[in-house]
Design a protein around this nucleic acid. Sequence first.
DNA 1: CAGCATCCACTGTGATACTG
DNA 2: CAGTATCACAGTGGATGCTG
Lengths: 161, 161
Amino acid sequence: MCKEGSFSGDGDGKGTRPMDPDKPVTAAAGGAADMIAKLQSYKQAGASLDNCPIRDVLGQIGDKWSTLLLITLGERSHRFGELRRAVPDISQRMLTQTLRDLRRDGLVSRHVHPTVPPSVEYRLTSLGHSLLEPLSHLTRWADAHHPAIRAARLAFEREVA
Amino acid sequence: MCKEGSFSGDGDGKGTRPMDPDKPVTAAAGGAADMIAKLQSYKQAGASLDNCPIRDVLGQIGDKWSTLLLITLGERSHRFGELRRAVPDISQRMLTQTLRDLRRDGLVSRHVHPTVPPSVEYRLTSLGHSLLEPLSHLTRWADAHHPAIRAARLAFEREVA
DNA sequence: CAGCATCCACTGTGATACTG
DNA sequence: CAGTATCACAGTGGATGCTG
């Protein structure tokens, strides 16, 4: 299993970057190599990769609604109903549940205003906010390469057919 | 692209974003704001967010095995059996299926060597390789903040109890 | 308004056995 | 070796109705 306090097995420190917000993106290959090396160390550390950070985080934000809510809350804090309207095709069940999971992981905080019609405000915690930046790299990639992916899918369909 | 940052000058009445004092959002806002603006434009473009790039990509790499395989293949190309050994707890069914999906999206290519015992080599395409970099930002974040997340989960458990 | 409870369909995942 | 096929099951997500 994964280690507790020190997440990187390496002692050289090249893998431990303490979330500098304006880190240069130039660490392209470096970042990837880092990631690969990290994975290797996980494999050696524990037999199971089930609870390694990568899985843990991706399992969460990889679900259907988390990122959408995270980004929406990244704009500004929203009330429950606002979120429903902001993400129209989410069911109220999933909104509640996803918010709960996000809250559970410390990414979102919940603030109840004791008014007569209850009013609950959700907003990103600092942790949640810090996730937006790495997430944006991914969404930027997704955006940039989405046409390529769709093209690949079409090509694949033809290929199999 | 991404010029539609209209929300930045929001000027809405509640523009006062009560921010956690320990986390200035300044630097992260660059990429993140872009992402937020993009989401806004998606919402306006189509009624459904189902097929927006973010969902499309995250839905793929958010599954249980894709990232693991992507990173593993990022190290070097692997044969089928090598991948099984490299990711011990994947079932052969899921390995096949995930590889197929990855291939479908043009992230991985498949090369059959017509030897007597069939030998198939999988490797990242350039598209797949390009995904490694943004992905590494996320894994780095995951790694760095995993303790915080686990702490939040523990705190949450206590809180509800 | 915000949220919970229930029922239900679909999909992702795994175990096992079989094939080219 | 590199798959495919079948079955079984758990988790996810949607629809609906109810509550404080």
